[in-house]
Amino acid sequence: MASNLAVAVLNGIVWGLIMALIALGLNLIFGLLHIINMAHGALYMLGAVFSWYVIELTGNYWLALCVAPLAVGLIGLALERGLLRTIEDKPLVTIICTFGIMLVLQQLALTYFGGTARRIALPIPGRFPLFDLQYPVMRIVIAAISAAVMVALWLFLNRTRYGLWMRAVVQDREMAVALGIPVHKVYMWTFVLGSVLAAFSGVLAAPIVSVDFMMGREILIMAFIIVIVGGMGNLWGSVITAVVISLIHGVGSIFVVPSTATVFSLGFMILVLLVRPQGLFGE
């Protein structure tokens, strides 16, 4: 039992940190652009798919971790400039539009990458004992990288001029315009940053899960749940929620059937939406 619990807790934290990265990207875009990005899961999937190609070519996972998110960032740039810019002020329209983009990206991945799941070898193959079970070292490394990225994001938002601009736009858009902040540029780079975060978590998750063109569909819903429970626009609420939900899920599934757990957590979500639509950590 002790080993079960230890693995469940450790694993809950690891997954929570990966989920937090995905949710942060989604939430960043929502907080600033008010776009619910249904294509976010597809961008996560593209990150993993691109990393698979980079690894096929070079055999280097760490290179893939740098290159794939940048490539997806370019796609994000094109999407924002080419498609979303004109409809940014209509939230419902953007939902439908990003739903269409999701269909297209998934189908493209299917056409070129194929429908079969592929795997990426663990770049760090070791395991360490944990009571009478074992735990892969790589997962700890992945969690550490996620945490580091979150710290970097915090520094970016709080210590750079762009970060300041972004926070200013979130707080009061009109005022930001009046102050001469290039709001459209801020929108653009925020969307790119969100896409990069999605792709980055895709590359991080790739060695744990397998790379598959459908991998973004279920993750998307999980990310929604985290963003809503944590509070839309509240970035640190997302991080806490991601880790807590992941822990509850991990520990809870020792005791109950997963589909029951899923139904209950979805029910909890509905409750949060009704009672505190601003999220548990929202103001």
Binding site: T116, A117, V209, S210, M215, E218, G250
Partner: peptide, 27 residues
């Protein structure tokens, strides 16, 4: 995608682990 929560429930006395998943989860 992550089987750790389920695998840890496997009974310590189990001799045969029979799995059935399709696609990416099978890997």
């Amino acid at each position: 995608s992550d089987f750790v929560p389920y695998l840890q429930k496997v009974d310590p006395g189990t001799k045969v682990l029979f799995t059935a998943f399709l696609g990416a989860p099978a890997l």
